[in-house]
Design a protein around this nucleic acid. Structure first.
Length: 839
RNA sequence: GCGAAAGUGGCGGAAUUGGCAGACGCGCUGGACUUAGGAUCCAGUGCCUCGCGGCAUAGGGGUUCGACUCCCCUCUUUCGCACCA
């Protein structure tokens, strides 16, 4: 054994050894309970960053721990390989997208290998390969056959920068999730997946996601956005046209003083006399810029409708704030009880009539809308009812009268999947003049994405320019036909990759028995940024595949861990902006000598110049140090504050462990029985602490802290005889086993060095002995009225009565309670005596 | 604006069910070994006080023998949703 810890050498050795021995591969093992541990697969952008490392290390610790606990663990890795950056690189440098992607994968795979994660690479997949995307096409066709994939012309989110359509989930604050440019509306023919068919089930399923962070479940529910309400027809005066509105507040129907249509509503154009004004409003509406949205923008159409509840004549307006996509695209406006309607009514001088009065409320005119609960007034037969009751009664009434129906609406819309881009899965549809839109016959799948084509980057689908791709024979009538030239949203790829992993790359993709064996994913780990998008789509896909008889579960991910971001301090010069740490040395800007502002701790990013790269880190300290630090700095769900000095601390810890083993190498090999003693006790306590820390929410930081404590105690232990050396050997063996999921290379190396022939990862997780962990003596803390007044070392085996007597006989306590009346003495967990005095 | 989470030393963070606040690490201070050390080892380190002791978990109140933990109010930060009728 070397005297000095040299991570570069040992890490390489063991990575090679593990790979060759196949310890990381997962074979189905019926004798063990399965555990599927999955980290979100990366987009092969070119380089792994610290966020990836953190994600994978968390998953790897769980994997190695679960294996040692006897589980048959599936831990795969692959590549989310379709997407725009590859296409952009192709446009910019002429590098074919496929080559660019594969190069990146090769490079990133080497980077991942260096951190020593235990992946089963025999299941590796890349979504850009025909073997993989063939199934996207197959699912598409199955969904098409069931009416779950359909085409419609609709107003879609269009990103001019990316020259493509975006799904609703991909529009963040009216901006493109990828490039941040403002998204506009555009009418296009698009393919949709009917996720709304599963809205209710996806919502109900949320309540079963008990292993998910609550806020993520809340976001899912929020996104699905169920609301109960009613639809009613407001007949247009002197015409047989009816305006159908949706409301969640039927109890306020008598307060409806006007009706608003969305500018995109077909009736808006029909009923409006002043077409020019309508056009202007429509243009504003299409900008869909909530930040600058004019909440009062709108106009009178010139027509009136009749409120079916009371026969009252109400004005019909067009209002820019009314969305065509939600509800019926038309609303009844109740300014007294809706703040937007109130604002609109005030601006347009429309009447405001109060129909709900708060408990003890005055009859005074409202200064703002009252949206709370109360008693219904001015509402015919319903006057006097509590408004909640009125909702039920009014719903019954409108259904009986046939003027409306109680109904449910969701914010969730169908998932638009067409993308006018090249680097994605071709949509397997053929258009024939005579036969219409037909799916590609299953036997002809996959529809191969042509490679090595020239990309210009100018709008429209690149595939439309490839004649050999476009022109085909109609599968039905065999006359000339054309292919759909759009590709699928890449979120389709990631909606089922965890199902593909259940089988090895060499096995059949949808082997049902493999899928039944490994699904669901027991532990999923990734960033919160996918809280809605990817997770919702995957939940949808899982249900679709369930209904196709492929999977047997409803929910794909039993537990979800959303890990925090990797952050680091930043430096800023008022002149030169963000600075690298070395430019900010001494508190002065290296360029202009200006005093440097200490910026906030921010997520690592190139632009903020606060990045630490995995390569430099493993080069300098080794993977084990990087792993230990990123696990020790904070619990996994919290952001970590990267600190170079903190990394040094983790490195020192591993060095001290090495030194301890080196110093005792000769003595710890022989195994003798050991007696009790403080070190044995501490070791048992540590096994307990580490196990509990992992089991309880994966709090690896406290697990590592416990191991540091054990190392401190072991290092200062001075063995004097054979029994002491046996105790030392026990402590070190246990320490290595407990630390091995966190720092696998050094533990494997030391494990072998102290005389073990087999890999440490073939060992079982150590167990602790409750008796051996028990303290013989405790420090009895004595409190008077909640304040610590004395301490006494006593035997742990004393009874509560004996402890009470000791507490009351303590000299200091006697002095303090002299002349006072004792109320009670409570012994807490056998280690604290609380004396309460009469007040 | 609405909703959620959080606020503990100089810093990152500990503290099952209410029970010694500050584990562990970083930093800092002193010492040892050294030609030297930014290496290593040892000791100390919440604040105030010479000390006894007092004060401390964003701030204020409450429940309790006892509150970082439970309840109420206020402040701050972060995140999510932002015209969803």
């Amino acid at each position: 054994m070397e005297e000095k810890y040299n991570p570069r050498v040992i890490e390489k050795t063991w990575q090679k050894e593990w790979q060759e021995s196949g310890v990381d591969e997962t074979a189905r093992d019926a004798s063990k309970q399965k555990f599927y541990c999955l980290e979100m697969f990366p987009y092969p952008s070119g380089k792994i960053h610290m966020g990836h490392i953190r994600n994978y290390v968390i998953g790897d610790v769980i994997t190695r721990y679960k294996r040692m606990r006897g589980f048959n663990v599936l831990h795969p890795m692959g590549w989310d390989a379709f997407g725009l950056p590859a296409e952009n690189a192709a446009i910019l440098n002429g590098t074919p997208a496929a080559a660019w992607t594969l190069d990146n994968i090769a490079y990133m795979k080497r980077q991942i290998a260096k951190i020593g994660c235990s992946y089963d690479w025999s299941r590796e997949l890349a979504t850009c390969t025909p073997q993989y995307y063939k199934w996207n096409q197959w699912f598409f066709i199955k969904m098409f056959e069931r009416g779950l994939a359909y085409k419609k012309n609709s107003s879609v989110n269009w990103c001019a920068q990316c020259q493509t359509v975006l799904a609703n989930e991909q529009v963040i604050e009216d901006k493109c999730w990828r490039c941040d440019s403002i998204v506009a509306k555009k009418e296009l023919d698009q393919w949709f997946f009917k996720i709304t068919a599963y809205a209710e089930e996806l919502l109900a399923g949320c309540d079963t996601l008990i292993g998910w962070p609550e806020h993520v479940v809340a976001m899912q529910k929020n996104w699905i956005g169920k609301s109960m309400g009613a639809e009613l027809d407001f007949p247009v005066e002197n015409s047989d046209i009816k305006i159908r509105i949706f409301t969640t507040r039927p109890d306020t129907l008598f307060g409806a003083t006007f009706v608003c249509l969305s500018p995109a509503h077909p009736l808006a154009a029909k009923l409006t006399e002043d077409k020019d004004s309508l056009k202007r409003i429509r243009a504003e509406y299409d900008k869909q810029d909530a930040a600058t949205a004019q909440t009062t923008l709108g106009m009178f159409t010139g027509t009136y409708a009749i409120n079916p509840m009371n026969g009252e004549r109400v004005a019909v307006y067009v209002a820019a704030f009314v969305l065509m996509e939600y509800g019926t695209g038309a609303i009844m406006s109740v300014p007294a009880h809706d703040s937007r309607d109130f604002e609109f009514a005030t601006a347009h001088n429309l009447p405001i009539r109060q129909v709900i009065v708060a408990e003890g409320g005055s009859g005074q005119p409202l200064k703002e809308a009252y949206e709370g609960e109360g008693i219904v007034v001015n509402s015919g037969d319903f006057t006097g009812l509590p408004n909640k009751e009125a909702i039920i009664k009014i719903n019954e009434y409108i259904e009986k009268k046939g003027i409306g129906i109680a109904t449910v609406k969701y914010k969730l819309r169908d998932w638009g999947i067409s993308r006018q881009r090249y680097w994605g899965t071709p949509i397997p549809i053929i258009y024939c003049e005579h036969c219409g839109a037909l799916p590609v016959p299953e036997a002809e799948l996959p529809v191969i994405l042509p490679e090595n084509i020239e990309l210009k980057g100018k709008g429209g689908s690149p595939l439309a320019l490839v004649d050999s791709f476009v022109n085909v024979k109609c599968p039905n009538c065999h006359r000339p036909a054309t292919r759909d030239t759009d590709t699928m949203d890449t979120f389709v790829d990631s909606s089922w990759y965890f199902i593909r992993y259940c089988s090895k790359a060499s096995e059949e993709a949808l082997d049902k028995s493999n899928i039944a064996h490994f699904l669901p994913v027991d532990q999923y780990i990734g960033g919160v940024e996918h809280a809605v998008l990817h997770l919702l789509y995957s939940r949808f896909f899982t249900r679709v595949l369930r209904d196709l008889g492929i999977v047997a579960v409803d929910e794909p991910f039993t537990r979800l861990l959303t890990q925090g971001m990797v952050c680091k301090e930043t430096f800023k010069c008022p002149e030169h902006g963000w600075l690298f740490p070395e430019e900010a040395k001494g508190g002065k800007c290296g360029k202009c000598n200006h005093p440097v502002e200490r910026g906030r701790v921010e997520k690592m990013s190139k632009s903020k110049k606060n990045v630490v790269t995995p390569d430099e880190l493993t080069e300098r300290y080794g993977a084990d140090t990087a792993r230990v630090f990123s696990l020790f700095a904070a619990p996994p769900e919290k952001d970590i504050d990267w600190s170079d000095q903190g990394v040094e601390g983790s490195y020192r810890f591993l060095n001290r462990l090495w030194a301890l083993c080196h110093a005792n190498i000769a003595k710890i090999k022989p195994h003798e029985g050991h007696a009790g003693g403080p070190l044995i006790r501490k070791t048992h306590q540590t096994i307990n602490k580490v196990t509990q820390s992992i089991e309880r929410d994966y709090h690896f930081n406290t697990a590592i802290a416990a191991l540091m404590e054990l190392l401190n105690e072991t290092s200062s232990f001075k063995p004097a005889n054979g029994q002491d050396y046996a105790a030392l050997a026990f402590a070190i063996r246990s320490m290595l086993l407990l630390l091995s999921p966190f720092a696998p290379h050094i533990c494997e190396e030391l494990w072998r060095a102290i005389g073990n022939g087999k890999s440490i990862f073939l060992e079982g997780w150590p167990s602790w002995d409750e008796e051996a962990a028990k303290e013989e003596e405790i420090e009895l803390v004595i409190q008077i009225d909640g304040k610590v007044r004395a301490k006494e070392r006593v035997s742990a085996s004393l009874t509560d009565k004996e402890k009470t007597d000791i507490a009351l006989n303590n000299a200091k306590v006697k002095e303090l309670i002299a002349g006072k009346r004792l109320k009670q003495v409570i012994i807490v967990r056998g280690k604290l005596a609380s004396i309460a005095l009469e007040k």
